[in-house]
Design a protein around this nucleic acid. Structure first.
Lengths: 272, 272
DNA sequence: CAGTGGTCTAGACCACTGG
DNA sequence: CAGTGGTCTAGACCACTGC
């Protein structure tokens, strides 16, 4: 069977999960516009399942053969779909074991989004940061925050402020805003008590997995409150890192503003 | 023919270009340690040809079928090799036309390594930057520069200083160091006269293609000389962006230190 | 029209994991 | 050992480009 832009699902596809794109199979007259390759449709289906939480972070997804028979497609086609999702860091392949939903809870990919590393030595040499939650309160979204989180101004949001220290030295001051609804029940205690990356907590406690993020970086001088928390003078320049993190459907789920002290650390970036 | 870790090249491969990895073919006794998949070997070969300048930036490389027959391998195997190189931005595929060596001279990928963009409007709205070469001189590498460029201290290097302005406003001050040998014949005039990205000039004039780079970012305050060139006060924090750019074989070919004014622009980064 | 990359198949064997 | 992902093949047809 070759392709002439068929669709997965189609007739007699009892085992295919719900929500599968359907259309004629086996060389349907190509009159209909805007077809997409089978592997793209499979990719979309997997994405949808991830979004719906059918396969949770850390769990394995069905095997390639399994998916191939479900979609009445060859293994290679499923493979290409999974390959691309793995390249996007949404899935992780493990030979001999299976394909797993990526998670921030794994040691190897922890702090994947934190690019501040010590000037000398590898980033693991200094060990994990000491964390202190300064504040965690519920308030109404300002227009800035609302815009960033795709909410309406006045919608409930959480605001968290915390300081990260390395070797007892305050180095990062972060303010972050989270939409109220998905993060219902957030408290300073839950944040303090959890040991591990904050994004891992979001996954396990609130079912929110951060998939990608964008950052806007500037150089700034600290105001009085910031100087106090970071214990620096008024002429210490800081890196301002404004991040918006997105979950599966490209829905913004966090806005974060970090101030980084860069006298002993630097923000590392790889250009490709 | 299936694989049991054969090698490309092998017997009777007259058309295969020079330097092809060679070993037994068709299921060689797998006693030898450390085999690599065929597609990896092909990838390595292509990489080597790029490095050697056999296919220049902008030119097309042989077709998949061509490479497949050369290496006595199926099209799919070549495909996987090319796919990965395209994912690394070393090659660009164009359906119906061929596969091309990536170049900084293309409009679409120009300024791929410049992440400073205006706060409002898209990055193309402000048009290209006005460039002024402040200085271009030959000197001996300091230990810092030597280390970054994998040279010995005292080896000849070029040092270039320039200012980029947007809408008449000085915004970027860059110092960059280039190894003396590959960039023999560099002058301030050649830099000034060229219209287009500097990395495009490096490709066409010196045969050096920058493939990837790493950046270390800090917040700093300018010294007197820097304040003058950027026309800012002593309390204006700046982004310090220290870049090392690499050519094909991961050989460092440029060290650059940029100072970015971030009151109307910001450094944009995508986290995946 | 021929030539290119893009999608897809069916089947093979390899390498790795775990029971 | 069975099950998983990883590599490879030979051949098919599609979509796009340019002559």
């Amino acid at each position: 069977m070759n392709q002439t832009n068929a669709s997965i699902g189609g007739p007699a596809v009892a085992t295919a999960p719900s929500g599968t794109p359907v259309a004629g199979h086996a060389t349907p007259a190509q009159s209909t516009p805007s077809f997409s390759p089978l592997y793209q449709q499979i990719k979309a289906f997997i994405l949808q399942s991830l979004q719906a939480g059918e396969w949770k972070p850390g769990e394995s997804i069905p095997s390639e053969m399994d998916l191939a028979t479900r979609f009445r497609v060859s293994q290679g086609t499923v493979r290409k779909a999974v390959d691309e999702l793995a390249a996007d860091n949404l899935l992780v392949r493990r030979q001999g074991k299976g394909t797993f939903v990526a998670t921030h809870a794994e040691v190897l990919v922890q702090y994947r989004f934190l690019k501040l590393i010590p000037d000398a030595g590898d980033s693991s040499s200094e060990g994990p940061a000491e964390r202190e939650i300064i504040d965690c309160k519920r308030l109404r979204a300002s227009s800035d925050v609302a815009k960033a989180l795709a909410l309406r101004a006045g919608d409930p949001v959480w605001q968290v402020r915390r300081v990260l220290s390395f070797a007892g030295r305050p180095t990062i001051l972060e303010d972050l805003w989270l939409p109220g609804v998905p993060f219902k029940g957030l408290t300073a205690e839950r944040l303090s008590d959890y040991h591990g990356p904050m994004y891992a907590l979001f996954e396990t406690e609130f079912g929110v997995r951060m998939v990608r993020a964008t950052e806007k970086i500037r150089a700034v001088l600290p105001d009085a409150a910031q100087r106090l928390l970071l214990k620096v003078g008024h002429d210490t320049p800081l890196l301002s890192v404004e991040r918006i993190a997105f979950t599966y459907n490209d829905a913004p789920m966090e806005m974060r503003r970090g101030l980084y002290l860069t006298d002993t650390h630097h923000y590392r970036n790889e250009l490709n």
